[in-house]
Design a protein around this nucleic acid. Sequence first.
DNA 1: GTGGTCTAGACCACT
DNA 2: GTGGTCTAGACCACG
Lengths: 123, 123, 123, 123
Amino acid sequence: MQIIINNSSMIPIYEQIYSQIKMLIINEKLKSNDHLPSVRALANELKVSALTVKKAYDLLETEGYTTTIHGKGSYVLKPNINLIKDEVSKDIEARLQIIVEKAKLVKISNEELYSMLKIILED
Amino acid sequence: MQIIINNSSMIPIYEQIYSQIKMLIINEKLKSNDHLPSVRALANELKVSALTVKKAYDLLETEGYTTTIHGKGSYVLKPNINLIKDEVSKDIEARLQIIVEKAKLVKISNEELYSMLKIILED
Amino acid sequence: MQIIINNSSMIPIYEQIYSQIKMLIINEKLKSNDHLPSVRALANELKVSALTVKKAYDLLETEGYTTTIHGKGSYVLKPNINLIKDEVSKDIEARLQIIVEKAKLVKISNEELYSMLKIILED
Amino acid sequence: MQIIINNSSMIPIYEQIYSQIKMLIINEKLKSNDHLPSVRALANELKVSALTVKKAYDLLETEGYTTTIHGKGSYVLKPNINLIKDEVSKDIEARLQIIVEKAKLVKISNEELYSMLKIILED
DNA sequence: GTGGTCTAGACCACT
DNA sequence: GTGGTCTAGACCACG
C-alpha cells in the first residue's frame, strides 16, 4: 500500500488515507475482494494512530467501497463505476461553479479560464 | 452590511464574515475609506459574539484589506487589484488541477470537461 | 503651532500632541510664559476631539512643562533643563539596555553596534 | 517552560508569552522539533486563560516560528537566523534613531552617547 | 462611543 | 488529550 501522509497539510490524516485508498480502488490498483492491511498494521506502517486508520476504513465502508468481516478484516468491493462517475461529475460541476464565481469577481475572462484549463490538461 | 451567517456550515463564522467582507471590498460595494460597522454593532446584527466579529476584522487587517484606528473603528483600504488577481489565479489553477485529476480517475474526457465549463459560463 | 498628527501610527494621538509640544518647549521654540492655543482652537486646527487635546495638556501640566490658569488658558513654564537631561539620560540608558540584549540574542557584535550608532550620528 | 507573566504590565499577556517563547527558540533553549506544552497545560501553569495562550501560539505560528498539528500540538520549526538577524538589526536602528533624537534635544553629546553604550556593553 | 484584552466554560474535530 | 471555535460578559485605553 503506497500511501503518503502529509502531517502539515490542512487535510485530516484520516481523509488523506481514505481518499488515497479510494483512488487505488477506482483505479483498480486494488481489485475486488482484495484484502486491506489490518488497521494496526497500516497504522504502524504510516506511523499514525490506529484510531485514525479506523476512521478512514469506516468512511470507506459507509461510502460502499469496502466491507468488513468481523475477525477477518476489510475487503474491497466491486465499485459501481457509473455511480462514481456521476458523483464525481456533480462534484466537479460544483467546483467549477466556485471557480467561475471567483474568476468573475476579479474579472478573469472566459477565454483566460479556458486557457488555464487547457494548460493544465496538456501537462 | 449584507452578511449571511450559516451556523451549521463547517466554515468558521469568523471566516464567513471575513470572506464576505473581503468580497464586498474587491467588488467595490465597500469603497476605500468606507467605515466598517463597529465590532459590537455587527456582532449584535449577526447575533454572534463580538469576539467572533473581531477575529474576522483582525484577519481583514492582517491581510491588508482594512486598517483599524483605536477608538474610531475600521476603515477600508484601497485594494491592490493586481495582487488579488494573481492570488485568485493561483487559487483557481490549484482547483483546476484537482478537478483534472478527479476527472482522469473516472475517465471523464477533456471534451466533457470543456463542455461542463462552457455550460457553467453560459449560465 | 506646527503639530503633525499621524492617525495610523500606533502612538495615541494625545501622546503625539504631548511629546511634540514638549519638544517645542525643550527646544525653546515655545518660551517661558508663552500662551498655548486654547484646547478648542487646537482641536479644531488638528481636526481631533477636544478631549484628546485636553488629555495632552493635562499630561504637560502634570509633567511640569506648563501651568493652567482657570479661565485664561495654559502657559509655558521655564523648563528645568538639568532635570530633563537627567530624565532623558535614564530613559536612553534603559533603551540602550534593551538594544544590547536584543543584539546579544542574535549575536550582533559590539563593533557592529558601535558602527550602527556611528552611522546614525553622522546622518 | 520558564515563562514569567507580569499582570500589571502594559504589554498584553499573550504578547509576553509570545516574545518569551520566541526568545527561547532564537536562543536555542527550544530546539527544532521540540514539542511546546499544550495550550491548556501552559494556561494552567501560568494561571491564565487558555485563549490567551492560544493567541500567543497563533502569533508564533503566523510568524513562522512553530507549526501546529491538530490533535497533536505545536512544534518548534528551524528558525531562519539570518532573516531574524536582519529584522533585529532594523529594529535596533529604529531604536537608535529615537535615542539620537532624544539626545540631541537635551544636548547630550555624541561622546556621551558612545560612553553610555560602552558602559552597558561592559556590564 | 470605539477597539484591545482577558476570563471561564462550552462543544466539536482530530489523534 | 489535543487544538479550533464560540459565547457572554468584564475591564481598560482611546477619542
